[in-house]
């Protein structure tokens, strides 16, 4: 009797504990493709006279695309943070033949009194070495004296595809830049989609002494609209899309906010149609909405790819 029971139990045991499929760890699953940017760390620092200038960015590195910048100035003699300075910030890209250009950026940095830093951003259009190298031109004041300093910086490839950017010439012959700012780490869910939209302002006066900021002017585009149609480009997904998305409109922070629904992880394309304040198309085309399994989805003239 005992033998029979033990035998049956042994069989049961062996069969049951042998390998089965593991459930997916969802948190790990949505983190596989996404570099998380959590903390502001020092990206670069340099000295000018008795001052140390520290530039912080998320995870301590600058990338192609949108970068929030925090800048601190410390007087090494008094060991004090300078908090009443007028700080200007200008990134310059110099290509192999010596031509200079810039990228959307905040020229005058604003002091954040709560956190004690000067705040700004830069939307780097290329990584270092692609067509040239990046240099930061910074000026600041202390005790009515102006100091200027320039520093070579390293702009890395954007590893988080959810922070990709696009630059293009619109139908109005102006140059525009769209950079994704959020979500950094999307979810299979509704995601608040935030993008910065910028425009290059053609200089009206001849160039002065280099670097003449009037030659490198960019502005936030106002009251335009980005119509959104997210789709999965993978041929087998047949141009799959999601419901309940919202077009991007500008809010008080100057950035463009909308909603993108990702129905599953993987490659997505955010197809845009960029409209000016009079709802005229500056760039972008409507994409087919048909479900076409086996055929790669057609993209808009204006799109940004994401991946998570």
């Amino acid at each position: 009797m005992k033998f029979h029971i033990l035998f049956a139990i042994t069989i049961l045991f062996v069969i049951t504990v042998s390998c089965t499929l593991e459930e997916t760890d969802y948190e790990a699953e949505i983190a596989t493709e996404v570099t998380d940017y959590y903390d502001f760390e020092e990206a670069t620092s340099f000295t000018s006279n008795q001052y140390i200038i520290t530039i912080e960015a998320l995870n301590g590195s600058l990338h192609k695309g949108y970068n929030e910048i925090r800048l601190e100035i410390t007087n090494t003699q008094t060991n004090e943070h300078i908090n009443n300075s007028e700080v200007t910030f200008l990134p310059i890209l110099t290509d192999a033949s010596g031509n200079n250009s810039s990228c959307p950026h905040s020229y005058e940095l604003v002091y954040n009194t709560d956190e004690n830093y000067y705040s700004g951003y830069a939307v780097f259009t290329n990584k270092s070495g692609d067509i040239g190298s990046w240099e930061l031109y910074i000026s600041f004041t202390d005790n009515d004296q102006t100091y200027t300093v320039n520093q070579n910086i390293s702009v890395l490839e954007q590893t988080n595809k959810n922070l990709n950017m696009a630059s293009f010439i619109g139908n109005d012959d102006e140059m525009y830049f769209i950079a994704l700012i959020a979500p950094q780490k999307p979810n299979v869910s509704e995601n608040n989609l935030v993008a910065g939209v910028y425009k290059y302002i053609q200089p009206t006066n001849p160039a002065g002494d280099f670097p003449d900021p009037s030659q490198f002017l960019f502005s936030k585009v106002k009251n335009h609209k980005l119509l959104l149609d997210p789709r999965m480009p993978e041929p087998s997904m047949g141009n799959h899309s999601s419901p309940n998305n919202q077009d991007l409109i500008q809010l008080n922070d100057g950035l463009y906010h909308g909603v993108v629904n990702y129905t599953m992880t993987g490659n997505w394309t955010l197809n845009f149609i960029f409209l000016n304040e009079n709802d005229q198309v500056i760039k972008g085309t409507e994409v087919p909405t048909d479900f076409t399994p086996g055929i790669e989805g057609v993209k808009s003239e204006l799109y940004i790819d994401t991946l998570f």
Binding site: T24, E29, T32, E33, V188, M232, E234, P235, S236, M237, T263, M264, T265, G266, N267, L307
Partner: peptide, 11 residues
């Protein structure tokens, strides 16, 4: 995906 080196799609 058809190219198996690409990211799988999960939900």
């Amino acid at each position: 995906p058809q190219d198996r080196s690409e990211r799988t799609m999960f939900a």
